[in-house]
Design a protein around this nucleic acid. Structure first.
Lengths: 329, 329
DNA sequence: GTGAAAGCGCTAACAA
DNA sequence: TTGTTAGCGCTTTCAC
């Protein structure tokens, strides 16, 4: 496989000139440019990024940290990141931590060892101390989930307000007995969404019944089913459920159906995220739409700016309440 | 940021010795090893993979080519690949082509330019000519979808037999009027699964009615809905549907429900792939389970072997028919 | 057991 | 406009 030296020899020029042609510098005569291009074609030459990257001290790789690829929530964000990255000649290394610190460390090492130029962290379970420390010497952006204290710039939505809007919608259509399916409060978004839930209830003088708040360990479908099972078995059964993720809500939906009740007539359901699948269920799911694709592109742009040495500011994006069948018979 | 020179200086040894310590070579005295390790710690040194990779002419990155991240079918395969890759110190670059040749070429270039050591292609729409040409100088494995002619090793299942089993199951429980929701026959798996469908019908002397074979452009949910809409409007309405992907089947499910019919009482449905969601629908979906995780690990191992210069053989894995609610009242 | 030095393939500063 | 050359950070051969 040819290298730049051989191209230079073949074209009868120096390696510097070949490099200039490769990088589209305008200081090269049309004539020599053609000589070089001919040589490149003739030798089937492809410049090695290994050499270029070492020389430039960059990898042009962006590391994306997510807890689970299987969580569809990340799909559109990743798409957004990839679009923005590619347009600036970066590639993305998608890293699933599985909330496993060991795996996380493998990926952090990639940045420490210069194999990645920066990180977009979307993992709520990330070791924030390590991340903060890493941020001293490396470019890092938080996306969706974040820690304010870390000082690391983030893109996100106002989770509390979004949850507030969701629950307010349930109240407006007549519900007063509303359950909350939440996840572990060690996650910031869980605390924020619960705060929004409380705020909506309190604003309408509906007492917050702690018995109707359920905490799941994770965001998966089965956890939604389990929580709903408990809710269905509880005394003073709620007429509506707000789940902090679509996957949980879809689990709840399935459980309500299995129990022989109807959504939304017997129990209304609201989710959060507007994943693709929220439109495929029966009934379709009312949910909060986050601007995921945009969040992704912005995160990538912030990261690339940061890599270039710019100062970047955190951004809070808008969201939308999407009303569908699960709250409107 | 410290480099190997500074560590050598600090430790009072040569860079060669530092390198030896870094790579765990046993020819180093315990005493010097400790000196070096102390220096590393003191300087907070992290070896640069850029330097190492250039020197070793490798990137230790595996490129995974898929058409759409949003297709849940790939999730488990990717997981399998990642597990196997990490255990051998490789990382994966997940590349979504969107069936866009331009994007595909960006990714191919990464291999040509040494930024990736090999490719696992899972994109049915891949440009097989380019891939074949690339395979002359680079390590490539096909996973799930493949082209026999290309001569590129593959891991897959016997699609024809799997489809045959699925349709046979429908026949066994009493169906004779069975529709097929297929995708474009330019894809090998589409041709194979259709062949399995035909084989099952013919074996039971059921005439194949071309009017009951529907072709969709893609594998998405909406395409399943559309196809099912046509099926429901056709004369001599089928009592069962075999869809060549779960997403199509779930679309069909939704359409049947909206139409006011019951699954499986009025129409039975079988899908293909056993994606996570196939268990979350109402009713749950009978489907063909591919050993996705295993397929992924095997593909990764084959690729790494090939990178090392070994000869690798194609492999055909087993599948399973998973009977659930959509075919059993 | 350890060191000197070459070289992986490229870019850019400097010189001409 | 083009060429010479140093050097990015590492590994490895060859001496000692």
């Amino acid at each position: 496989m040819a290298n730049i030296q051989q191209v230079a020899k073949q074209a009868g020029v120096s390696v510097a000139t070949v490099s200039r042609v490769l990088n589209g510098q305008s200081t090269v005569t049309a004539k020599t440019r053609i000589k070089v291009e001919d040589a490149i074609k003739k030798l089937n030459y492809e410049p090695s990024l290994l050499g270029r990257n070492l020389r430039n001290s960059e990898s042009r790789i962006l590391l994306i940290l997510i807890p689970k690829i299987a969580n569809p929530f990340y799909l559109d964000i990743i798409n957004g990141i990839e679009t923005a990255a590619l347009s600036q000649n970066y590639n993305i290394l998608l890293c699933e931590t599985d909330s496993n610190p060991e795996r996380e460390n493998i990926y952090f090492d990639l940045v420490r060892k210069k194999m990645a130029d920066g990180i977009i962290s979307m993992d709520p379970a990330v070791n924030i101390d390590t991340l903060t420390e890493l941020a001293e010497r490396h470019a890092i952006i938080q996306c969706s989930e974040y820690s304010e204290d870390s000082g690391i710039p983030y893109v996100t939505i106002d989770n509390e307000e979004a949850a507030y809007r969701a629950v307010k919608h349930l109240i407006k259509i007549g519900h007063e007995n509303i359950a909350l399916i939440n996840t572990d409060e060690k996650y910031l978004y869980a605390r924020q969404r619960k705060a929004g839930y409380r705020k909506a209830l309190e604003e309408h003088n509906i007492p917050v019944n702690e018995d109707h708040i359920y905490y799941t360990q994770q965001l998966g479908f089965e956890y939604g089913q389990q929580a709903m099972k408990k809710i269905l078995g509880s005394k003073n059964r709620p007429t509506a459920v707000f789940a902090v993720s679509d996957l949980l809500a879809i689990g709840a939906l399935k459980e309500i159906n299995s129990y022989g009740l109807n959504v939304p007539d017997d129990i209304a359901v609201v989710g959060f995220d507007k994943i693709d699948f929220s439109n495929m269920t029966n009934p379709t799911l009312t949910t909060i739409a986050q601007p995921m694709h945009r969040m992704g592109t912005i995160a990538a742009e912030m990261l690339i700016d940061k890599i270039k040495g710019a100062d970047v500011e955190s951004i809070i994006l808008d969201y939308e309440l999407v009303i569908r069948e699960s709250t409107s018979g």
